[in-house]
C-alpha cells in the first residue's frame, strides 16, 4: 500500500487570466504504516495535494501511483481508490445529511455495494472506534456538539475501512479538550489498526507529538520532507515561510544559548522535561 507522487503539477484555471499554480513539481513517496504530518501556510497547496491522493483532482501534469498503478490511467477504478484512501475534509461535520448518526455512517459502505448486514456492522464498528456514545447512535447528528459531530463524520470515512486515512485540519474550531481527544483518537487508530495516516495542519504544535515524518509545503512546493527533529532544526527557515517550530524547540534553543548543556533537537514536552532535569542534575 503505497502512494507515490511523481513530478505532480497542478494549475488552477489554466488558460485564463486567473491561472495560478497550486502544486509545482511535487515528489512524495508514502509507505505503508507511516504517520505523516503535512504542514503548510494557508494557500500553500496542502488541500490541493491531498485531493490528488484519492483522485478528486487530477494533476495538470505528472503521475500518481497507488500500489504501483497509475491512477490517471483509463479504466482505473476510482471507487476502490477512494475506499482505500479515506479523506476527511476540513469541518467534516458539514457533510452530514442523514436523519440519524448511524444512517449517515452507513452511507460510505453502502456506496461500496456491500450487503446490508456488512454495512451495519462496519458502521457500528466505526462508531465504536471513534469512541462515540452508543446512546446517541440514533439521534439526529444536528443535535450533537461540534466535537461529537466531527467524530460521526470521521466514522463515516472509517466505515469504508480505508488503509490510508487523510485528515484535513481535523482539530480546526475545536476547544483544547476536543482537540486533544481527536488527536489522541487518530493516534490510536494509527497504532491499533495499523493504517497509514496523513494529518494536515498549519500548526507544528499539533503534529509534533504524534507524527514520525513531516512534509512542509511552501507556495506549492515541498520545502522539507524529513523526521520532525530534522525539520524543526531548520526553525529559522520555517519562520521565513510563515511557520514556526513548536515552543519546545525555542525553549531548548534559548536554554542552550544561555549555557545549559541540553539537546536542542527534542520535540515533545516529555523529552524536554527529561532533558532539562538531566542538565540541572549536572549543574
Amino acid at each position: 500500500m503505497s502512494i507515490v507522487l511523481s513530478h505532480v503539477n497542478h494549475i488552477y484555471d489554466e488558460d485564463t487570466a486567473m491561472a495560478h499554480p497550486a502544486l509545482i513539481d511535487v515528489n512524495i513517496d508514502i509507505q505503508d504504516g507511516e504517520f505523516i504530518g503535512l504542514i503548510g501556510h494557508t494557500g500553500s497547496g496542502k488541500s490541493t495535494l491531498i485531493q490528488h491522493m484519492n483522485g478528486l483532482i487530477e494533476p495538470t501534469s505528472g503521475h500518481i501511483f497507488f500500489d504501483g498503478k497509475d491512477i490517471g490511467e483509463q479504466g482505473f477504478n476510482k471507487k476502490t481508490l477512494r475506499a482505500n484512501v479515506g479523506l476527511v475534509f476540513q469541518y467534516p461535520e458539514h457533510q452530514l445529511f442523514e436523519s440519524d448518526c448511524f444512517k449517515d455512517v452507513c452511507f460510505g459502505p453502502r456506496n461500496l455495494g456491500l450487503p446490508q448486514k456488512e454495512v451495519e456492522l462496519r458502521a457500528f464498528e466505526a462508531l465504536s472506534q471513534v469512541g462515540f456514545d452508543p446512546n446517541y447512535f440514533y439521534q439526529s447528528p444536528f443535535d450533537l456538539s461540534g466535537g461529537q459531530k466531527r467524530r460521526v463524520a470521521i466514522a463515516g470515512v472509517l466505515a469504508m475501512k480505508p488503509r490510508v486515512l487523510i485528515l484535513d485540519e481535523p482539530t480546526a474550531g475545536l476547544d483544547p479538550k476536543g482537540r486533544e481527544d481527536i488527536l489522541g483518537l487518530i493516534s490510536s487508530l494509527h497504532k491499533e489498526m495499523k493504517i497509514t495516516v496523513i494529518l494536515v495542519s498549519h500548526s507544528m504544535e499539533d503534529v509534533a507529538d504524534y507524527v514520525d515524518r513531516i512534509i512542509v509545503m511552501n507556495k506549492g512546493r515541498v520545502a522539507f520532507d524529513a523526521p520532525p527533529k530534522e525539520v524543526f532544526s531548520h526553525y529559522k527557515e520555517l519562520e521565513e515561510i510563515g511557520l514556526a517550530a513548536p515552543q519546545v524547540t525555542y525553549c531548548m534553543q534559548d536554554l542552550a544559548t544561555a549555557g545549559f548543556d541540553v539537546d536542542t533537537s527534542v520535540t515533545t514536552l516529555q523529552e524536554a522535561k527529561e532533558e532539562i532535569l538531566k542538565a540541572l542534575s549536572k549543574c
Partner: peptide, 13 residues
C-alpha cells in the same frame, strides 16, 4: 463544490 467532493470521497456516485 466542497460538499460534492466530501461525498465523493465517501464513494458517492
Amino acid at each position: 463544490d466542497k460538499i460534492m467532493k466530501a461525498q465523493m470521497a465517501r464513494c458517492a456516485d
